[in-house]
């Protein structure tokens, strides 16, 4: 068996599906794409998948990872998959790998929140700190020093999976502040590897 590592975007309407929905969605994508997937044994056979850690519902993922086990190498995988995806999933890149080690190597992600209306960044930062997440919450200065700018209505934070993350509902609540946010975009910009 060989593995193909798929780097894809999850965006648009599909930000609202859960990780379990996403798994089902990918099962159907690879069956439609007909790329020679390797299935588990038994009477409920399922494609061999290994996903990067779940995105919270409501989050866009700009560079999510998925390892797929294949019976044999298959040509043109990227295009085959992109012809079989629903709107909201798009494959950026694929490459063959020997071992699937996503579970161990990915330890966190860089998250970005952008919004219009509602409160400003400092209030959100403060709210997140109050949730007990100050350990990994970098200051704006620290982020600027590594090239990440945080504007009034935008906040980028790296989060480690072992610490957990605030629910999107909580984030929206914090962003709402005293008014109501009119537009927002929550995304995981990239995965952080060990």
């Amino acid at each position: 068996m060989v593995f193909v590592r798929v780097e894809y975007r999850k965006f648009g309407p599909l930000v609202f599906i859960s990780h379990l929905d996403l798994i089902r969605c990918w099962e159907r994508i690879v069956r439609r794409a007909d790329i020679g997937v390797s299935f588990t044994k038994g009477f409920h056979p399922r494609p061999r998948f290994s996903f990067s850690p779940p995105l919270p519902v409501g989050f866009e993922g700009e560079r999510e990872l998925l390892d797929i086990g294949l019976e044999r190498p298959c040509l043109d995988i990227k295009n085959r998959i992109n012809r079989a995806v629903p709107q909201g999933i798009y494959v950026n890149n694929v490459f063959f790998i020997q071992h699937s080690d996503l579970g161990e190597s990915v330890i966190g992600g860089l998250y970005n929140f952008q919004w219009l209306g509602g409160t400003d960044r400092s209030k959100l930062e403060e709210g997140l700190r109050n949730l007990g997440l100050q350990d990994w919450l970098y200051t704006s200065e620290q982020l600027t020093s590594v090239g990440i700018s945080n504007f009034k209505n935008s906040l980028s934070v790296p989060l480690l999976f072992e610490k957990g993350y605030p629910s999107p509902k909580k984030i929206v609540e914090l962003i709402d502040g005293t008014g109501e946010v009119i537009w927002l975009r929550l995304s995981r910009v990239q995965l952080l590897e060990r």
């Binding site: 309407p13 599906i17 519902v57 629903p86 929206v172 009119i182 927002l184």
Partner: peptide, 20 residues
């Protein structure tokens, strides 16, 4: 629906459509 609305309901995926 306005994008932020779906952040405020329990099952947002019921309202997105866009099926294959």
């Amino acid at each position: 629906y306005p994008f932020d609305l779906l952040y405020r309901v329990k099952k947002p995926a019921s309202y997105i459509g866009n099926e294959y």
